[in-house]
């Protein structure tokens, strides 16, 4: 549940309220609305780590790609995933 996923900020919407700033973030082709309340420094073109509808950190692109690599493997069918041999009885 504490897994966050990286995405790229496409556009930012300003807000009157302190915690109301939001962004459209691209998550491997899916565009989602995300709150920037926890990452006031995030701007267009930045990579952010997203968790439960909020950007929780600004990260660099290399780390974003690494995390996606894990996520893609974790979501792939079992057989293609393991880095090591499976546990033997």
């Amino acid at each position: 549940m504490c897994l966050a996923v990286p995405g790229k900020v496409i556009s930012v919407s300003a807000s009157e309220s302190e915690t109301g700033r939001t962004a459209v973030v691209d998550l491997q082709g899916n565009r989602v609305e995300t709150s920037l309340a926890l990452t006031p420094e995030a701007g267009e073109g930045d990579w952010v780590l997203m968790h439960a509808g909020f950007a929780i950190e600004v990260i660099d692109e290399d780390h974003a790609r690494e995390i996606w690599q894990y996520l893609n493997e974790a979501m792939a069918p079992e057989s293609s995933a393991p880095a090591a041999q499976q546990d033997q009885p």
Partner: peptide, 20 residues
């Protein structure tokens, strides 16, 4: 529910509810 990964999101949402 959740740990520190999630708690700030709840906090920000409550602040937003207050402001709105």
């Amino acid at each position: 529910v959740g740990f520190e990964t999630t708690a700030p999101a709840t906090a920000a949402t409550i602040l937003e509810a207050e402001q709105l």
